Computed example of a mutant assay.
Amino acid sequence: MLSALQVLTLVVVGVMVGVEFAVAFVLNRILNALPGDGGQLGRAHGGRMLGAVMPFWYIAALVLVAIWAAAGWGHHGNGRTVTAGVLLIVSVLMSALLLVPINNRGKTWTPDNRPADWKQQMSRWDRLHYVRVAIIIAAFALLAAALV
């Protein structure tokens, strides 16, 4: 049973990492290169779409890691699992306190109502997102290492 939980958790966290990595290093670069208002409109749509899904995904990942840590208490590698859980908590707090407020503003912007500093706000979101991606990659690596 523990093995099935570990595999499920690795898949959920791994796919989440992949999506967030793609946003940071592929999608946002594509959107930034679009001419005219395309990039801003794409970011607003992405903010609405992913903003609706990612909170549940992050919480589900955290819950799975917590269950894994509890079920595996005393097993080899459980310290790595607990540390991964702490990193996921950091990513959730960072998201809620720093990234979500920017995203909530950005997802409502249109070319007619966006603020003059919208590019600076998106740049700040990108920088914070890079840090969050590094944190969740570290959590994923620790979960994989916990199995070895």
Rank of each mutant, 00 (worst) to 15 (best):
L99D: 13
F25Q: 08
N32T: 02
Q121Y: 06
P55W: 10
A60H: 06
L2Q: 07
L143M: 10
L97N: 11
L50Q: 12
A52M: 13
N113G: 07
N103G: 07
V100G: 07
W125Q: 01
V11R: 01
T9P: 06
D117M: 03
R43Q: 12
M16I: 01
A61C: 15
A22C: 11
G39R: 02
Q6N: 12
A145I: 06
V148K: 10
A138P: 06
L147D: 13
L87V: 08
G72K: 04
M1I: 08
P111I: 03
A24K: 02
R127Q: 13
A24E: 09
G46P: 07
I135V: 15
V53P: 08
W109F: 08
G38D: 02
D37S: 12
N104S: 09
H129E: 04
L34E: 05
Q40V: 12
L87A: 08
A33W: 07
S95A: 14
P111D: 02
R132G: 04
L50C: 02
V63S: 02
L143Y: 10
R105I: 03
D117Y: 00
V86D: 00
D126N: 13
G51D: 01
W118C: 01
L93I: 15
G46E: 04
S95H: 13
A144K: 03
A146Y: 03
G36M: 06
G72S: 10
A134T: 01
R105F: 05
G79S: 08
A138I: 04
G14M: 05
S91C: 10
G46W: 11
V26W: 12
N78V: 15
L87C: 06
I135E: 00
V148I: 12
A145G: 01
T9Q: 07
R132M: 02
R132I: 01
I137R: 01
S91T: 11
R132T: 00
F56Y: 15
V13D: 01
V7W: 14
I30L: 09
W68R: 04
L31K: 05
W109Q: 07
G38E: 07
V19T: 09
N104I: 07
D112G: 07
G79D: 10
M122V: 08
Q121G: 09
R127I: 15
G18I: 06
V65H: 07
W73D: 11
A24N: 11
R132K: 08
V63C: 04
V65R: 11
V92S: 09
M16F: 15
H75E: 15
V11W: 05
V65I: 15
S123W: 09
A60P: 05
R80V: 06
G51N: 03
L34K: 00
V131F: 09
Y58V: 13
L5H: 07
E20P: 04
W73K: 09
M94S: 13
R48N: 10
R80S: 13
E20H: 11
A61G: 15
V82T: 08
F56D: 01
